[in-house]
Design a protein around this nucleic acid. Structure first.
Lengths: 120, 120
DNA sequence: TTTTAGTACCTTGTATTGCATAGTACTAAT
DNA sequence: ATTAGTACTATGCAATACAAGGTACTAAAA
């Protein structure tokens, strides 16, 4: 008898990443104008794996919310690239998201911090 | 023309909470056997608001995954209460979730930490 | 007795997110 | 002309948390 996964911890892990990905992408663009592959590489470097199917709709959402704008730049090694740039309201939203993120960390630590029988 | 919310930061905030709620609930139960209202109160104390409609299905899921068991206890002020208790595999899962959570913090901080024009 | 208030548990439908998958299009080399 | 590599886009799906409504038990009031 096999248990595929009595509790899908991996799945939970994926769920935890949801929501912060937008924050991360906005932060990456804020650092330097970037196109999709740039962003995916940087997320991978930080072990936050994201695939195209996740990234592109998200970039569209950021643009629709006027948090970013983009420009096309030609490439010598393929089709033109869409470089995304953060806007002023994008920076504001980023600051808010960062604040929310740190608040969340505080809240969660308040709960899991004082769990007894903690392996440390 | 009204913009209800050019970017739903509140909504994003909600999205960020996803996944960590299960971690928090498991942590609360690990600390001490608890029934639904106990859990909601403790989450509120930590500013993690959760409503019944979220909590009950989640408690059922934990039980179905054998991470918790429950017992009924009568109450003098209403219907009987379902006290949830963590199991051994529950503690293992909790440890994993905690590790995942700290990994996530590390990953996100790696990205948003070195954002230039940071207000702090 | 019937009604009301308070407590506690449970279910259904919905919006959003991120992912898997597949498709389109441009460039360069064979 | 075909193939490989790069880049952008669209569609369908699973999982989560929430809103809203419902059931049921106890105790007090009418």
């Amino acid at each position: 008898m096999y248990y595929i996964c009595s509790m899908n911890t991996e799945n939970q892990n994926a769920q935890m990443r949801k929501g912060v990905i937008e924050l991360c992408i906005l932060a990456i663009i804020a650092q330097q104008d970037a196109y999709a592959s740039d962003i995916i590489i940087k997320l991978k470097e930080a072990r936050l794996i994201v695939v195209e199917g996740t990234l592109y709709p998200l970039l569209t959402r950021l643009k629709n919310d006027s948090l970013t704008v983009y420009r096309w730049e030609e490439s010598k090694s393929g089709p033109p690239r869409k470089y995304h740039q953060i806007t002023e309201s994008g920076r504001k939203a980023l600051a808010e998201l960062k604040a929310d993120w740190h608040e969340l960390i505080t809240s969660v630590d308040k709960i899991i911090g004082d769990t007894t029988n903690n392996s440390k």
